[in-house]
Amino acid sequence: MSEQIGAVLVFVGLFLATSGLLVFIGRSVRVLLGRTERRRLLGPAALLAAGLVIGAIPFATQRLYFSIVGLAERERVVDGRAALVLTGWDRSDYSILATKPGVEILEMGNADVTDETLDLLAGLPKLRELTLNDSRITDEGLGKLRALARLESLRIARTAVTPEGVAAFLADAPPHFREIDVTGNNVPTSILRKWKNAAATGDGAPPADGQAATPERRYVN
């Protein structure tokens, strides 16, 4: 929406500036030939300037917006669940999580996320889906995630976790846990496959609710 307004402004600006420029050139020639007075150049020059200013408004406002607001968090309700995206934001204060206790889907794939940051997750009892790709979490942080009772899906691609840490986590994961992305961590596929197949054969930790169907487990490595 705002982009469309911006586009219109750019076009209007461009149109005015071009018209101004053309008239300006035409009159300049006439001035050089002595057929008209110099002050008659002022009109088209003003038009040109106005066009440039109008055309620049969207770019300027965007710069201004980014310099003031920057890249803030993105908060939405997705299929009835509170989703928060902090990945790629330009802030560093994760205590914002304390103000969002209802978050069920959290994207936090940033390099400044450490094991300590994960302590804040204790305040998110409804968390189901968590992305920590490219963060600095280690096996210690992974251990903390076991306390997330509702956790189902986890992305820890390109982090400092070890195959042993992943294996330990999967062996004692939250009851509904079923999806993991460990891309780039050199986790042997055998560990993941074993965990996946455990659900199919029923020796994995079964859901506590007494639901008959074990949900399908998935991994990406």
Binding site: L71, A72, E73, R74, R76, V78, D79, A83, V85, L86, T87, G88, W89, I105, E107, G109, T131
Partner: peptide
């Protein structure tokens, strides 16, 4: 918006 939008936004807020 929606789940698809969220999955794309997960690439980063920018």
């Amino acid at each position: 918006e929606g789940r698809l939008g969220h999955d794309l936004a997960a690439a980063g807020v920018g």
